[in-house]
Amino acid sequence: MQVFSDPRAAWLARLGDATLILGHRLSEWLSRAPTLEEDIAMANLSLDLIGQTRAFYTRACELDDGERDETTLAYRRGEPDYRSPLIVEQPNGNFADTMARHLIFSAYAAPLYETLAGSNDAETAGIAARSAREMAYHLRHAGEWMIRLGDGTAESRDKAQAALDDLWPYVPELFEADGLDRDVAASGFGVDPSTLRENFDSTIDDVLGQATLKKPAERRGQRGGKSGRHSEHLGHILATLQFLQRAYSEARW
């Protein structure tokens, strides 16, 4: 696939890649959640993320050459074209794994969108402002669950701590700025993710404090998704996600 001609488009598409893959992951819980209430809650979270994806992709295509649309970006690209951070493609695991992943992602995305609401592109600013309200709720939902799992039974506590420990290596990638991040931030369009780390840490410390969970030690970590180098999980996700568009390329709603 051809690259984006406009760095703003490439950067917005990267945000969309993250929400698309995480939204798809959450949709895998449908009909499998521990309770009916949580099943609906996760469907809502998933749909919020897919909605954000559509907005990010659509604006990216408008800023770019206009030859592609959201469908092309979502369904007709190969793995290396997706620039989502590795954390969002991690398997759902048990409920604690999913909530820990969601806590980490929303503690990163909430301040990201809040800052992006000040973008010099009014359209992008509007998308970010709406998405920030959604992420504030995601953060609360995942946070309240982590507090109850951590401060719950011995088993739930063990699972919540194990989930955090397993996912923490994927945290550094979220906040590492690359050339694209710095370019769009410098132009006043986007956000340099390294400026969000302090906000993230204070959110996480607050939740983990209430949850009586330990913040994992920060090791060097895993990275690569943002530059298109993914784990084996993404290919399986795309196989499910893209099957219909690939098999019936003229399919329409």
């Binding site: 309770t35 209430e37 609906i40 809502n44 709720y137 109850r148």
Partner: peptide, 20 residues
């Protein structure tokens, strides 16, 4: 009605189940 472990979670579940 709905099931929830405590008041805060009940409020969240109510938001998700009944105000979609």
């Amino acid at each position: 009605s709905l099931h929830a472990h405590d008041a805060k979670m009940a409020l969240q579940a109510a938001r998700d189940v009944y105000t979609r």
